[in-house]
């Protein structure tokens, strides 16, 4: 009993003790959830019925993938071309994407939004507050 309740402590292994315990709990919980789920399914008689849909029906492919791509591109160029140009470009494109058309008005709105926000953030945080910007 005493052994069970004692954890072997070794300085150079301190860092592995707790993650091991957590992993054990996680595996235990996962197995438990799986078993409960199987039991439930057997009761309902739907053991083999799998229906999992990741995206909602008719999801907006353009906006979704567009957002993902723009976000990644933004992060990629941020440090290369600097905060101001990257943000203005990114905001212009993403606002346009969210509006969803390229009418003249949309372009104006996007441009205004991107310029105003980027400049204000740049001035306020980068210059006045001296926050380190990309």
């Amino acid at each position: 009993m005493k052994d069970l309740l004692t954890v072997e402590l070794k300085f150079s292994e301190y860092h592995t003790i707790f993650p091991k315990i957590m992993l054990t709990i996680l595996i235990f919980l996962a197995v438990l959830m799986l078993l409960l789920n199987i039991v439930k399914r057997i009761k309902k008689g739907t053991l083999t019925a799998f229906r999992f849909q990741f995206f909602i029906d008719n999801y907006d492919k353009l906006k979704f993938y567009g957002t993902v791509v723009l976000l990644i591109a933004y992060a990629l160029v941020l440090e290369r071309i600097g905060f101001l140009p990257a943000s203005i470009l990114f905001m212009f494109l993403i606002t346009l994407l969210f509006i969803g058309n390229i009418k003249k008005k949309s372009i104006v709105v996007s441009l205004a939004n991107s310029l105003a926000t980027s400049l204000v953030i740049w001035y306020l945080f980068g210059q006045l507050f001296d926050i380190t910007l990309p």
Binding site: F55, I56, Y59, D60, F64, G66, F98, G100
Partner: peptide, 8 residues
């Protein structure tokens, strides 16, 4: 991301 999936 979720909202963009739904089309904003």
């Amino acid at each position: 991301l979720q909202e963009s999936e739904e089309g904003m």
